[in-house]
C-alpha cells in the first residue's frame, strides 16, 4: 500500500518536473515563435494575425537594405574570427611555452574583457580609437571584436593544451625538427578541435554583439544587431522577422547536418578501427 502511494508520488513529481521544463522552454522560445509566425503575417503592423503571406520574404530578396547589414555582420564576424583564432592560438602556445616579464600581467589581463561589463570595454575602445585617430567603422569594429574574442580562444586552447602530451613536441625537436616545423606539423594538428571550438565561439560572440559595436561603429558602417537596435524604437518592418526566421532555419539545418556527419564519421571510423582487430 505504502509503496503504491510512493510510486504515485514519484509519478506526480516526474510529470510536474516535465511540465516545469516545458514551461521554461516555452518562455525561452515564445518570442522566437511569435517572430516566426509574424513573418508570414499579411500586415505591416504586427499586432494580430491578418492572414498568410510570403510577401515579406519576397521583399527581403528584392528590395531591402536589411540584408546588406547582415552581410556586414558576416564579414566582420569572419574577419574577427580569423584574427582572434590566429592571435589566440599562437598566443596560447606562447604563453604556456615561454617565460617572460609581462607574462603574469598578460595572463591576468585576459580575464578583463570576459568579466568587466561590455559597456566599459566598448567605451574604452572608443576612447582608444579617438586617441589614435582611427576613424570609426569596419576596421574599428573588427579590432574591437578581436579584442573580446581572443581571451575566449586562449581559454579554450589552454584547456586543450593542458590535456596534451607535451613529450610529442620534444620528440619532434629531438628528431631534428625546429620550432617552426614542430609547431606547424605537430602542435597545430593536435590543436585543431580547440581551434574549431574557439572559432565557433568567436563567430557567435561577434555576430550577436550589440554593445561594443554600438560604441565603435560610427554613423555610416554598422552591423546587423546595431541596425536592429536603432530600428526597434521606431518599429521593425516584418522583413526583419523573415530574415531572422531564415537565419534560425539555417542554424538548425547546420546543427542537423553537423550531428549527422559526426555520427556518420564515428560509425565509419569505428568500423575502420575494428577491421584491424
Amino acid at each position: 500500500m505504502a509503496s503504491r502511494k510512493r510510486k504515485q508520488k514519484r509519478m506526480l513529481f516526474k510529470s510536474l518536473s516535465n511540465l516545469y521544463a516545458v514551461l521554461v522552454y516555452g518562455f525561452l522560445y515564445a518570442p522566437i515563435a511569435v517572430m516566426m509566425v509574424f513573418s508570414f503575417n499579411d500586415q505591416k503592423v504586427n499586432y494580430y494575425w491578418n492572414g498568410f503571406t510570403l510577401k515579406w520574404y519576397v521583399k527581403l530578396f528584392t528590395d531591402s537594405s536589411i540584408v546588406e547589414y547582415l552581410w556586414n555582420s558576416l564579414f566582420i564576424a569572419g574577419m574577427a574570427t580569423l584574427g582572434s583564432v590566429v592571435i589566440g592560438t599562437i598566443g596560447a602556445v606562447g604563453l604556456i611555452r615561454f617565460e617572460f616579464r609581462l607574462k603574469k600581467l598578460v595572463n591576468h589581463s585576459l580575464y578583463i574583457p570576459i568579466v568587466i561589463p561590455e559597456i566599459v570595454l566598448g567605451l574604452s575602445l572608443l576612447l582608444l580609437f579617438e586617441v589614435i585617430r582611427l576613424p570609426l567603422g569596419f576596421t574599428a569594429i573588427i579590432l574591437s571584436h578581436i579584442t573580446f574574442c581572443v581571451p575566449f580562444v586562449i581559454i579554450i586552447m589552454r584547456g586543450r593544451l593542458s590535456g596534451m602530451d607535451l613529450s610529442v613536441e620534444e620528440a619532434s625537436m629531438d628528431l631534428g625538427a625546429n620550432r617552426m616545423v614542430t609547431f606547424f606539423r605537430v602542435t597545430l594538428p593536435m590543436l585543431v578541435p580547440g581551434i574549431m571550438s574557439g572559432a565557433f565561439m568567436s563567430f557567435t560572440l561577434s555576430i550577436d554583439d550589440v554593445i561594443i559595436s554600438n560604441f565603435v561603429s560610427g554613423p555610416y558602417s554598422t552591423t546587423f544587431p546595431v541596425k536592429i537596435l536603432s530600428l526597434v524604437k521606431t518599429g521593425l518592418s516584418p522583413e526583419v522577422n523573415a530574415l531572422t526566421t531564415i537565419m534560425i532555419a539555417v542554424i538548425l539545418l547546420g546543427l542537423l547536418i553537423n550531428s549527422t556527419v559526426q555520427a556518420f564519421i564515428r560509425k565509419r571510423f569505428l568500423t575502420h578501427i575494428k577491421s584491424y582487430f
Binding site: I87, G88, I90, G91, A92, V93, G94, L95, R97, F98, F100, L102, K103, L105, V106, S109, L110, I112, P113, L121, S124, L125, L128, L143, S144, I146, T147, V150, I154, R179, M180
Partner: peptide
C-alpha cells in the same frame, strides 16, 4: 620564438585592453 608567439597577444592585451 617567444616574441613571435607571445608577442602579438601581449601587444594586443596591452594596447587594446589595459591602456
Amino acid at each position: 620564438p617567444a616574441l613571435t608567439m607571445a608577442g602579438p597577444v601581449t601587444f594586443w592585451m596591452l594596447v587594446f585592453v589595459l591602456l
